[in-house]
Amino acid sequence: MIEIRIHGRGGQGNVVAAYLLAMAAFEEGRYGQAFPNFGAERRGAPVIAFVRIANEHILRRNQVLTPAFLIIQDQALLHVSGVTNGLLPGGKILVNSPQSSDELSQQLGKEVISIQASLLAKKILGRPVPNTALLAAFFALTGMLSQKSLRKVLQHKFQGIVLEKNLLLIQEAVGLVPAGIWQSEETNVASS
């Protein structure tokens, strides 16, 4: 079972990102579970969402305390206490940030990949919502789930011009990261 924690702020589509991830797992015949942990119900407030992906029925409903992956939608949250807590040894962090991956990896002493997801979303969607670009990058990095599944679940979630722009956005986002470098035995277990 792979556990993922998504950190962001109200309005950045954290819960949608978590749901899309679990839906993509479901699309590939696996089990997925996603749920949010809201703070204050307002835009800008820190929001956490949890995702589990497994090959068997997921029983547990507790919060994800020891994730294998962190997806951070707002780089400022990297420096908020508790955000990187519990990341498994060898765990990876994908972050929406203008800072370079090397710089952030060095700062945090962990393996970090950064992409400018907000900037890309602003360019293509006209709104700086980083969630779908980060998901596309995450799928590319881990190889855990296919871009095809992501496209499929986006088609469930969005329609018309928003869907078209998101499909374009994820295509661009995939090109920003080295494909498969986070592919491991663990992610393969999930895809076996």
């Binding site: 089990y31 579970q33 749920f35 949010p36 942990n37 409903r61």
Partner: peptide, 10 residues
């Protein structure tokens, strides 16, 4: 609430 109502699963 939340634990079930806001959880997405199969």
């Amino acid at each position: 609430g939340f634990t079930l109502t806001h959880t997405l699963e199969g």
